[in-house]
């Protein structure tokens, strides 16, 4: 298993993904630098999650290549760890064992460090059913990060959490990312989450990239006027309008969003 502190670079070259008759991603090119934090936003069913699943190697592209550190991905991407919308903890294992189980050789210290980093060390003997939704996602985060993966893929991991917990989790993910410098790809419906966390926000519409926007704001980010300007720019792209002065809700597609897209 490739494990290390430094992130990997990711490149998609002419990637197309077709499910039956439906073209989900079409001739997509994308470069992600080592240690970069990318957010992908867009309506449900635009292929955001598909893109993430291609990066994880859970799906193979119909055409084109996915390159991690310049070598093409075949099968599961060994350097990647995925955090899903639901925590997907094994209910029959304690918090500690849920993290330990993903290690080839269980290492008590390594597991405890990972749990400590997400602030759950004192809950290590609990069952997942005894935790709140936010705590469960933190265990999932510890599990994803315990091997210090070079690539972390986040598939709307905060979508099911309440607003306050979501803010806490955003700070946690940001601080862990700043400490460990893995490459991060976050799929989200929440535009302000994307602007808050990402170096670059990418919008996908009709299987193509419709916006690739740098977020040159210092961290940790506050909702300053430049923050809001970037946010409305992203929103305008998603909503397909030229004008950015729309007072629409900031969260796009949050209603009736399918948990897993095709």
């Amino acid at each position: 298993m490739a494990v290390g502190n430094k992130g990997v670079s990711v490149r998609l070259v002419g990637v197309q993904k077709v499910y039956g008759q439906r073209v989900v991603l079409d001739d997509l090119d994308l470069r992600i630098g080592k240690g970069e934090f990318i957010a992908i936003v867009g309506h449900s069913g635009t292929g955001k999650s598909t893109l993430l699943r291609l990066l994880a190697g859970l799906e193979q592209p119909t055409r084109g290549d996915v390159l991690i550190d310049d070598s093409p991905v075949t099968g599961l991407t060994p350097t990647a760890r995925v955090m899903f919308q639901d925590a997907r903890l094994l209910p029959w294992l304690s918090v500690f064992d849920n993290v330990a189980v993903v290690l080839p050789k269980p290492d008590k210290l390594q597991v405890e460090q990972a749990l400590d980093r997400v602030g759950l060390l004192e809950h290590r003997h609990r069952w997942p059913a005894q935790l709140s939704g936010g705590q469960r996602q933190r265990v999932a985060l510890a599990r994803a990060l315990v091997v210090r993966p070079p690539l972390l893929l986040l598939d709307e991991p905060l979508g099911a959490l309440d607003a306050l917990t979501r803010l806490e989790m955003q700070s946690l993910i940001e601080s862990l990312w700043r400490e460990e410098r893995f490459t991060a790809v976050l799929v989200t419906h929440d535009v302000s989450e994307a602007v808050r966390l990402a170096d670059r926000v990418i919008c996908i519409a009709d299987g193509r990239i419709s916006l690739d926007l740098e977020v040159p704001l210092p961290r940790p980010r506050e909702r300053s006027s430049s923050f809001l300007r970037l946010e409305s720019k992203v929103l305008a792209t998603i909503l397909g309008r030229g004008s950015a002065d729309d007072n629409e809700a900031h969260r796009v597609g949050s209603r009736g969003a399918a948990p897993m897209e095709a």
Binding site: L58, L76, P78, R81, V82, F84, D86, R88, L90, V101
Partner: peptide, 13 residues
């Protein structure tokens, strides 16, 4: 739960 099976696949059990 297919989600758990997929998780186990991602983590190369």
């Amino acid at each position: 739960d297919p989600g758990l099976l997929e998780m186990a696949r991602v983590y190369r059990f």
